[in-house]
Nucleic acid binder design. Structure first.
Lengths: 203, 203
DNA sequence: TAGAAAATAGAAAATTTGTTCTTTTCTCTG
DNA sequence: CAGAGAAAAGAACAAATTTTCTATTTTCTA
């Protein structure tokens, strides 16, 4: 292989990496000037490479919003999911302004709707595969089907249980999935959402 | 409350929403012109609102890269994780160019390192909480500790098992977590990574 | 080694984009 | 109903950023 060829791809890779890294850090595409400064390549050469890479389909031009790598652009169709506190805590879950962190997850993994994330504490749902410290993705809705795992507000406490309405006895059974725990019976409870995914840390 | 006040916050909300939606779709911030066209508010008024919202801390200005909402900006510190195929398939896992989809996950949830995502099939790890169809996040590394759940390449097949080296017998035991399955014994195996997180669909 | 081709660098041009300024419209109060 | 104040609209402005052009350097081949 010729040296020029090697240098060409080396420059192209350096530029592509630079875009990714800058984006990783700043959340926006770097300007050509920044890329030039970062890689040590001249502005015009960087520009030429960007056009070439775009023509090859490796990059996408967003006009004056800069160039994006494919994996950057691929983050369209993402849903913002707020990471809320612990499910055991008694405080109301949807206190606005307290949300500090978001995850953006692909809509294809979740489906449509509004979601939030909780971390669990306690062992009451251990037989459903939800252990202490696991992360639960909850679909926000105010109803549930029989047997769904719901986030329910009982008094001031939020709890994670299976939902079994018993209309004939005018009560709702909130069933833990742990033989050592007794079910909770309530007249009414506010359903905040249903658990759709558990995130278990193995290691 | 006065009408003007209501309209003010209404406009502000409309602008903020517009930014989010546009970003959701295009991966970049909309220009003031686009926001104006989309919301029906004039360019200069949109600009004034953007400055006001930035002063209030609700938006972040990225100069000519546009304005970002906080939850957009908050996606720095994310790791790109490729979604690879099914763990049961025999094909080599790291065939380049075949990766079509990426998820960007917060580094705080994963820690440093390189990761990839697999979906499982089969029931061999059912007792470890990994069921058929679950999604596994794998940390890419070529070694493992005793008892780790590894993605191992045995011959041409990738498999997910617990890792128990038995040096005194000069073999490695790959242990399923299902009493109906027998362990696999191999001389050597190529470790591709260790499972760190399982993503279980409850609903 | 010399010449041709390719790649690069530096500067100028063109375009997009946010900002500012002035005029107009709307709203509330006396 | 009239006037003051705020909010919005439209046009002009200024700055940033990509694109283009030309000269220079580097690299490969005969």
């Amino acid at each position: 292989m010729r040296v020029s060829q090697e240098k060409m791809t080396a420059n192209a890779d350096a530029i592509e990496n630079c875009i990714d890294e800058y984006y990783e850090e700043n959340g926006i595409s770097p300007s050509i000037e920044v890329i030039a400064a970062e890689t040590g390549i001249s502005k015009s050469t960087v520009g030429r490479y960007l056009q070439k890479l775009t023509a090859e389909g490796r990059l996408i031009s967003n006009g004056r919003r800069g160039y994006a790598t494919k994996q950057m652009q691929q983050q369209t169709g993402l849903i913002s999911v707020p990471i809320l506190g612990n499910i055991a805590c008694g405080a109301p879950i949807f206190a606005d302004g307290t949300v500090k962190e978001y995850v953006r997850l692909p809509a294809s993994l979740l489906g449509s709707g509004s979601y939030f994330i909780l971390t669990t504490s306690g062992d009451s749902m251990i037989d459903a595969g939800i252990d202490d410290g696991d992360t639960v993705i909850v679909k926000q809705q105010d109803y549930a089907e029989v047997g769904d795992i719901v986030v329910a507000l009982v008094g001031d406490d939020a709890t994670l249980k299976r939902y079994y309405p018993e209309p004939e006895r005018k009560r709702i059974r909130l069933q833990p999935e742990n033989e050592n725990h007794e079910p909770i019976y309530v007249r009414e409870c506010l359903i905040q959402g249903i658990a759709v995914t558990v995130w278990k840390n193995l290691k």
